[in-house]
Write a protein that binds this DNA or RNA. Sequence first.
DNA 1: TTGTAGGCGTTATCAA
DNA 2: TTGATAACGCCTACAA
Lengths: 342, 342
Amino acid sequence: MPAVPQVRVVTIKDVARSARVSVATVSRVFNSSNLVNGETLTRVQDAARRMGYVPHVGARNLVTRRTHTIGVLLPDLYGEFFSEIIRGIDQTAHRRGYHLLVSSAREAGEPFEAALSAMRGRVDGLILMSPYLDSETFRRTLTHGYPVVLLSCAPGVTSCDSLSIANYEGARAITRHLAAQGHRRIAMILGAAGNYDAAERLRGYQAAVAEEALAGDAELLIPGDFSEASGHAAAERILSLAGRPTAVFAANDCMAIGALSRFREAGLRVPEDIAIAGFDDIPMARYVHPALTSVSVDISVLGERATARLLDALHQPAPREPVHETLPTTLVVRRSCGAQRT
Amino acid sequence: MPAVPQVRVVTIKDVARSARVSVATVSRVFNSSNLVNGETLTRVQDAARRMGYVPHVGARNLVTRRTHTIGVLLPDLYGEFFSEIIRGIDQTAHRRGYHLLVSSAREAGEPFEAALSAMRGRVDGLILMSPYLDSETFRRTLTHGYPVVLLSCAPGVTSCDSLSIANYEGARAITRHLAAQGHRRIAMILGAAGNYDAAERLRGYQAAVAEEALAGDAELLIPGDFSEASGHAAAERILSLAGRPTAVFAANDCMAIGALSRFREAGLRVPEDIAIAGFDDIPMARYVHPALTSVSVDISVLGERATARLLDALHQPAPREPVHETLPTTLVVRRSCGAQRT
DNA sequence: TTGTAGGCGTTATCAA
DNA sequence: TTGATAACGCCTACAA
């Protein structure tokens, strides 16, 4: 056991003694109870300030049974996507006086459960994003008795609130848009294997392929993992295809940009020789060349809504029916898909 | 006061009663003390599992005076930069059994202090990034008695560990590199006003300007705020300059990419008509066209080192001399600056 | 308006 | 090896 460099720190007792009142009175002062005499009030406040007293939140939590903290458990913290989610969460949490305990558990299973139980007693509720989570693990671990909001989770867990993106609709719309430009052979660069968002985007693509009677070869489905590098590699593979597609839909913008770069290296013109579209509409999308057609989803809003839901649940005395909400997406047409807009 | 949807939750007492032992014994079981009888051990474990008991960390923290939590206070949570820092912190914290309490306080002053004191009693130490922080605010608020590591802070606060990036050296090197390509009129797109990193990058640029006897007109200093949009706007302004520079150094890659996009709109060729270089070497930098010359800083390492430092301090019984470390940067030459490499 | 005292869920120190 | 019991720092009836 490592030694703890514990500094002697001012407690409520010290302030009470110094101000010649009881701890109860000091407590009242700091909880803005208005049943404190004006003179006593200032005496306590003076003492507290002089001694540098700050209430110990941990102790307070214990007795009030509220931590004013929201647990956030994400599969990863890498990249703009998660950063935006956290920002959305932090923003509305902060506005309503809540703090964030952030953690990431890459995989389901043991570390995931550990992260989850580590939240017990430190959070009032949980925002949980686990695109890889099967409902079995979930049921086993998620019974700690506090409200939970799920993000981008596979359906099947209907016992608590959940929020997701209209992946299917967005992917279907953008694929149909490519078809409307005359493309019949459209490749898709897939998202990470096992990821729910990725699977839904694929499903949307496939729906469009069926509806528009597009080429449906298996070789048009190129694996990827959401990274720029995997988009670059996927483009490489597309170039080597016998029947080269005339358009590519990447499951996110990073991969689309990686692919763009590879196509340019190969001397292809985008969109003339090959059209490209992405998903997410990250800020960078409008600044690459040609500007990237994409499906816009306001990710920080996802975090905001999740937080709002959770806080509502926290302030709701009676448990309600769980709500499942899907955030809409919008198609953003730019130059990379060949439709002649900026 | 909102009602609390408190679920009756299993405590150590319940387990003790059910296993017909004292709470002390249950506690021992959960703290892997080996002075528990084998038979008692399993009886307690069974009872705990059956009742779904999870120790209450908050209560434990109170008595052990350790939370195993690190507070992270950032000026903002937007963008790849912060996301990478958090990831670096989370990674090493997680590995060493620590959790993260993340918060953002955009400005110095009251909300900043509030965020700081809200950490009292919930964290063992603090990682604080405040590029806008003056040491005065700092001294007033940062005396809660736990270890602190500062990130990207202006010097002047020498009382605790600090970490920063070699902004000056990196900016100087890249500017000199541009000069070595023959450029004499090099504009700089500045970072956010009042930001320490931004100021240092400017200082590095100015040093190079002086050393290489480059053009030093004030009009070559274009304001920016680190966003793509501000880079785009800055490029606009550069285009309108009477004596147009032949090269541009942007204080970060996002602005460089925004500028790149604007120059292309204007029909300029990069790097032939105008060279560009950025700072940070974000993943996207190699995938834009032309690939962006930049100064590479491993941001997640910044977070890692900060965490390592903090944890060391936490496990160190005696207070040591504060350490100030600067993370090196490396020049990454790609096509955008006109040096003929990929 | 103020103080006393019990308890929040644990751990830690004694005895037994 | 186990069990009482006193903290930990604070809040909150209840009493005064």
